[in-house]
């Protein structure tokens, strides 16, 4: 217990449990609005919000704004993808170029999700439990992929891992290059979901287990892992969803070779450029569907973790 406090006291930044820019609410991150509501209710603070009816004009503005910018346009994508009927849709997404881009995207995203699951947890562990000199700098650095424009990330990766690589590693126009780009942009997700849970974890249990003779491996597997598992899963799902939809960072390094390095969003972009709007909409609908599934899974996970916690 004292250990945790010293570590978190060493750098104020280490205590932060907030998802960085771009991380949606996840289980375990106590600051999410839903989580907070759930927590604040039992404290007895009157939630007057349940008593007042929303003013129609304010609600009208919010709904209109969301409809014009988000809902109607997204509905138009789905609508357009269905214009040729079910067979037209199926034909559009199974064209060799489309299906190979979808397969590459799903495969690469799964791989990226697994790497993030392992490395993200390791990084979070290092930030919370290891008194690493410069830990606060490292902690700030983790958010860089969220703040850095994706095209700049792509340019930076192509510069280091391109044809004229200063480290002698040429990944340009190869699938490995795509995976590296996706790893870059998804780096913060697992770290930022696991870190707060790890911080709040009670060390007493671990000490009790250790004093009863459990070795560190057993303590990790039986005590720590079950506690951080929901957060790990949530972070991995977010990283997967982000990898599925990534565009900017893969544009330069992939070289955009159909059947080889072309990811789904780049494929959509190309179809749009060559005026195949229907084909673009069909592949886009598949991606939207996958995103929705991930969001629903996350919501279920959140409730499940909430019930357990």
């Amino acid at each position: 217990m004292p250990d945790t406090h010293t570590v978190s006291g060493a750098g104020v930044t280490l205590v932060e449990a907030t998802p960085a820019p771009g991380v949606p609410p996840v289980p375990g991150a106590a600051e999410t609005s839903r989580g907070r509501r759930r927590r604040s209710a039992p404290t007895g603070r009157p939630l007057v919000s349940h008593g007042r009816r929303a003013p129609a004009i304010g609600l009208g503005i919010v709904v209109l704004y969301l409809s014009l910018v988000v809902l109607i346009p997204l509905a138009a994508v789905v609508w357009r993808s269905g214009e040729g009927g079910a067979s037209g849709f199926w034909h559009a997404v199974t064209r060799p170029e489309a299906s190979s881009s979808l397969k590459l995207t799903i495969g690469a995203s799964l791989l990226v999700a697994v790497v993030n699951l392992v490395m993200g947890t390791a990084i979070a562990w290092l930030l919370v439990r290891d008194r690493l000199p410069g830990g606060a700098v490292l902690d700030t650095l983790i958010d860089l992929p969220f703040a850095l424009p994706t095209i700049v990330a792509g340019l930076a990766l192509l510069t280091v891992y391109g044809v004229k690589s200063p480290v002698g590693l040429n990944l340009a126009y190869a699938r490995t290059g795509v995976v590296v780009a996706l790893l870059f942009v998804t780096l913060p997700f697992v770290v930022r979901t696991v870190q707060p849970v790890l911080l709040e974890l009670d060390r007493d249990m671990e000490e009790a287990a250790a004093s009863l003779g459990a070795n560190p491996t057993v303590v990790f597997l039986r005590i720590i892992l079950p506690n951080i598992m929901p957060a790990m899963a949530a972070g991995t799902a977010l990283a997967f969803a982000r990898a599925m939809s990534e565009f900017g960072s893969t544009v330069l390094i992939s070289g955009n070779l159909p059947f080889k390095t072309q990811v789904a969003s780049v494929h959509i972009f190309n179809q749009l450029e060559s005026d195949n709007v229907g084909g673009a909409a069909a592949v886009a609908t598949v991606l939207l569907l996958v995103s929705m599934l991930v969001l629903v899974a996350l919501d279920l996970l959140q409730r499940w973790a909430g019930r357990r916690g």
Binding site: P24, P73, L74, V77, A241, M244, S245, E246, F247, G248, A264, S265, V266, I268, F269, L272, V277, A280, A281, A284, L287, L288, S291, M292, V294, L295
Partner: peptide, 9 residues
């Protein structure tokens, strides 16, 4: 959760 390209589309 929406790809930037899909936003544009």
């Amino acid at each position: 959760a929406v790809s930037p390209v899909i936003v544009g589309l």
